[in-house]
Structure formats: C-alpha cells, structure tokens
Design a protein around this nucleic acid. Sequence first.
DNA 1: GTCCAGGGTAAGC
DNA 2: GCTTACCATGGA
Length: 271
Amino acid sequence: MRVVMPGFNLSLTARSGQCFRFVQLQDGAYHLVAHGHQLYLHDLGGGSFDLSCDQQTFDRLWHDYFDLGRNYDALEALGTGEDPYLASALRYARGMRILRQEPFETLMAFIISQRKSIPAITRCVSQLALRFGEQIAPGVHAFPTPGALARASDEDLAACGLGYRVPFISQSARLVHEGRIDLGALADLPDAQLAASLMTLPGVGVKVASCVMLFAYQRMDAFPVDVWIDRVLRQHYPTGFPFERYKGVAGILQQYLFCYARHQAGRAAGG
DNA sequence: GTCCAGGGTAAGC
DNA sequence: GCTTACCATGGA
C-alpha cells in the first residue's frame, strides 16, 4: 500500500542504532521484523512510501511503531541560536524517529550491546531470531519469546556470538519468563521506578536501562550516555547538557546527537 | 599486533 | 559515594 509519512527519514531511522532488525535490500528498500510481523518499506521520495501491509495493520501496528502520532517538527525550533551543535544535529538527522519497540526484544538487544559495535549487535540479534524465534515467513524469524531464550542452552546462546553476555541474557530471560519481572506492568511506573526495576536484571545498568526506557517505553527524558554521547557532552557541553531546557524531548535529542556524532566521525575517517 | 565497540560487575577505597 | 580490572567477540 502507498502511505504518506511527511518528513519521515527511513534510511536514518533504520541505521540509527536503536533497532537491529532492519535489513537494506539490493534495490535500496528495507525489510523489518517487529511485533511478530515483517514489513518491506520502499522510500518513493517526497514523504511517500510503499509498504507491504494493509491499511488495518498499518493503523493498528506500524503507525505507532514509527511514532507517527508525535509532532517532531517542534524539535526544529530548539537549539537554534543558543545551541548550534544541536541545531546541526537536528538539521543532519531531520526526519529520524524514535521507534516504539517491544520491551523484551529491546531489553535483550541492549544487554547484548555492551562493548559491541552496531553491526555486531545486529548479527547477534539476527542469530538469536534465526535459532530461537518463531518462523513467521520463509527464512524470516520473529524475535524469540522470553521462554525460548530461557530454555536455550549456554552453548547455543554462545554460538550467537554473545560472549561473556550469555549468563546476562539467560538469567534476564528467565526472570521475565518466570514472571519475576513483568515488562508490561513496568509501563505504569514513573521513570525513576522503571529504571530501578530494569536495573535489577543482570546485565542492565544505567545506560542499558535508559535505552530500553527510550526505545521501548517512550520515556523521552531517558538519556542514554554511551561512548559517543560521552564525547559529545565533553566536547560540546562542557558545562553540562541543559536537560531542563529540553525537558520532555531530551532523549529524542540524544538520538539526533548520537547519529550526528557518528556521521561526523565517519566523514573524518574518510567514510 | 593494537584499538575500539550504544557497559556491567565486583572489588577496593 | 568514587575508581579500576576484567569480561568475549569481531572489525578496522
């Protein structure tokens, strides 16, 4: 079906490091697996996209997944003048959106993310889906359920390239599967309690919890600080990031800063 | 060979 | 509260 998503930047969103289930195809289109569904997306330009779903599935699932109910245009007014670096980041990554991902998959993906590059994380998540996820189409697998990962052997998990994170994944999956942590119920908690609850899981610290809050629970004040953002803060915000000024959208801005910083580094490296 | 990657944990202070 | 060593793996 043909859909108009004004200003939506598919390419940047797909490569932004918040979701590891986008695959770019030969013709430039993207294939995505989320919420037990697959979706092909073709950017036709001018805000038009060709999607491999019907209207009902789009309205019920993908509309919210791509956070289309939120007005990102208001971000453009921020940063101008007082915050030129943020203005540059917003200009570069205009149209990128914060995806509304599944809590369990996001939790597992960002436990894996520690000390790994985005391509390496993508490989691990893909392997987990291939080995333990339900096949939803020929050669296409959903992300595994908590039970499937809880039952997986350490050897099979290690074969996915998880390294020393195997017990983190195994134990956290078990705690979710056994109901010791109810990821659905966590959505009702305020930010501080949500963060504290997530951090009771093995392999989850402040940064991973922040990513899960931002990318799965729509907590737009969650502000993950990884090595890239740490550099940005030290180089461009030596007196501290103005969280109060950006209250309610700081996490979104963080994602723009993250992508912009990586883009700049890529250019400097000649990529 | 070295260094780095969307860090967390445990030990030590 | 704060630093520090260590943790597997793959790519540059």
